[in-house]
Simulated scan of single mutants.
Amino acid sequence: MSFRTATLNILCVDDEVIGTRLRGEMLKEHGYSVVLYHCPLAALQCDLSIFDLAILDFHMPGLNGRELLLRMRALGAKFPIVLLTGCADALTHEECVLFSRCLDKGMSIQLLLETVTEFLDPNQTPD
């Protein structure tokens, strides 16, 4: 398990409840503070200034991941935003380049951990 002097905050937005909770627990086990939302519109109501990174799904009711990213940026979010989706192959290049990284949900959870570490703790290696 990784330990940090300052807790880094991750926002996870995905309408798939069970997978999002499991992902959140795994990130917490690695020392991150995680806030989960299952509704993209609700996520826009939180204080985005507290987050260091966001992990978004693409296909969600109300707003898709691209629309959520654009609204978050309009609200001042400057942190990396990672897209974690089951439909990475169906996204256009124009959609993908908006995100800091695009990952497919079918990939290893270790790849997500490495991506988070790369953005938040560049001097550390994930467990």
Rank of each mutant, 00 (worst) to 15 (best):
C12W: 00
C39L: 08
V35A: 11
I10N: 03
G31M: 14
A42D: 13
A88N: 01
G106W: 06
R66K: 12
M72V: 07
Q110W: 09
L11G: 02
R71Y: 02
D15T: 13
L56Q: 03
D104E: 09
R73A: 01
L68Q: 11
G19C: 01
A88K: 11
R101D: 01
D14W: 04
K28E: 15
L36F: 07
A88L: 07
L83D: 01
S33V: 04
L48N: 05
L11I: 08
P61C: 00
G62A: 12
R73M: 05
D89Q: 09
I18R: 13
D57A: 09
Q45I: 07
V97E: 14
F51S: 10
L111T: 00
L63R: 09
V34D: 02
F79Y: 15
L75G: 04
N9Q: 12
T20W: 03
L56C: 05
V97T: 10
I55L: 15
L68W: 03
K78R: 10
F51I: 12
A54D: 08
I55S: 10
F79A: 14
L75H: 08
C96Y: 02
Y37K: 15
S108W: 01
V35I: 11
A88Y: 05
P80D: 09
R23K: 10
V13T: 04
D47G: 09
D52I: 04
G65V: 02
E16N: 03
V13W: 04
C96D: 05
G86K: 01
T7M: 08
N64G: 10
V35H: 08
L27F: 12
C96G: 01
D52A: 09
G24E: 02
G106K: 14
S100N: 12
K78Y: 02
E67N: 06
T20P: 02
I18Q: 14
I50G: 05
G65Q: 06
L70D: 13
G65H: 01
T85E: 13
P40S: 10
G65R: 01
H38K: 03
Y37E: 14
V34M: 10
H38S: 09
V82F: 09
Q45K: 14
N64A: 04
R23T: 13
P61G: 04
A42W: 04
L68M: 12
T92K: 02
G65C: 00
L112E: 04
A77Q: 04
